[in-house]
Write a protein that binds this DNA or RNA. Sequence first.
DNA 1: TCTAGTTGTCTAGATTAGTAGATAAATTAG
DNA 2: CTAATTTATCTACTAATCTAGACAACTAGA
Lengths: 254, 254
Amino acid sequence: MALLDEQPGGNLEMERTAGVALWRQIAERLRTDIRNGTWKEGGKLPTEQVLSARFGVNRHTIRRAISELSAQGLLSSRQGRGTFVENAPSPLTYPIGPRTRFSEIISRQSREPGGRLIGSGREAAQPWLVEKLRLSLGQEAVHRLEVLHVADGIAVSLSTNWFPAHRFPDLVSRYAETGSITKALAAHGVADYIRKKTEISARLAEPEESRWLQLAEGAPVLVTDLVNVDEAGTPVQVSRTRFAADRIQLTVEN
Amino acid sequence: MALLDEQPGGNLEMERTAGVALWRQIAERLRTDIRNGTWKEGGKLPTEQVLSARFGVNRHTIRRAISELSAQGLLSSRQGRGTFVENAPSPLTYPIGPRTRFSEIISRQSREPGGRLIGSGREAAQPWLVEKLRLSLGQEAVHRLEVLHVADGIAVSLSTNWFPAHRFPDLVSRYAETGSITKALAAHGVADYIRKKTEISARLAEPEESRWLQLAEGAPVLVTDLVNVDEAGTPVQVSRTRFAADRIQLTVEN
DNA sequence: TCTAGTTGTCTAGATTAGTAGATAAATTAG
DNA sequence: CTAATTTATCTACTAATCTAGACAACTAGA
């Protein structure tokens, strides 16, 4: 058996009774094929009959997968002609480096960046947060800031940010005024900060994340956990960001 | 509405008719909770009744999710007592840097690394590969090497590697002899190489990937695309690696 | 214009997923 | 020992998913 057969004539077996509907498995597969440029923009997909034979499923199942991607604007079908790749928007690339700033990155790719404060609060830090922010005893209060990032009006990521409350007492209102974490930190005397460490993982989107990011349930998200430190090396911010995996790609330059 | 409510008493809404079965959504949710240490190792999960109320589903649906995780050894239930977190193996961390070498990374974490050649071939490079490997006209042939990486006997990643065939004519046999890409390249005169750029994305595992990595269908994979270059800066290898997202975490140090 | 090929729509039935409720079996606390 | 709690099984039913087949509507090319 050929491994990972990508030939047009290859037969693909689907997993059944695995808790993921066949039409969704096929939709996700077609989505990555489109992103990888298997069919060029404006190009024609194989016919429903051919696809159903290739995936070993009924034609209706293929149609449901196609309808899912059509609803998302990636495909469009026309009776008698075929199904075509609509406008595959080039995926955003998000470089991970010491000076990663969302708005700069998006602007550099000729997109219009935006951030929306969707939640905030003051809370007691969980043990893992105490450790990461190096909070001392009696100063375990943190501000939490939930921000939705958009590029050209499309949601790309949802981030939860924590800051030591004793050092940044007015952080939430400063962010609300300026719309920028960098500026909110500057207002508290942090002239500059750098990203120290980033942990990257992936999992399925939770329902609330799906809602904000306008993802299909069961779609994967890329999760980054990072710590920002000031010039003295003291942690000023811990951030957990969930990216819509089908709309963004992280890059690391060495 | 509270965003991303993580309180034990919080009500969680599940998405229905989204192509992902409720029991799988719940299983994935519990899996990440376990990994995040929501219940400590050996600790007791809430009862099935409580969980079914919290997720808003029938108790049988919860049982199916638990049975899935039990089958994977993460949970174990005992009649009359409850359901307990079994042995949550600490996720491997995989640092991404200029000198990333699989076996070194695994060894440093006190695990036994291994690689298995599961497929190879000589083929014509796709356009994107021609560009990445900077192949010149008439030299578009590449060797493809499929390797399964394991740590302590557990599959962690599946990588597809491409090499310019004209420069590394015996690469496949050299790899088969030595079991090391580094050594196979050295045999062709490449004393050292560094990782130039890494692209990171995530998607659902395809059936064949699920088989090799022993993942549940619909489980997410982390995908890294990288280019290795020799000391002169010439690309010597392009590699696409799929990591089991529930077993590994990538890290970037700045 | 005619025909082959393609997508759109409909009906019917089989399989899987989820709900609802009852009862058994094991464990723990008192 | 007894009662309350918790997981294990079972039956019955509803909803979602997948299959099978037929035919209509539209397109492109001979």
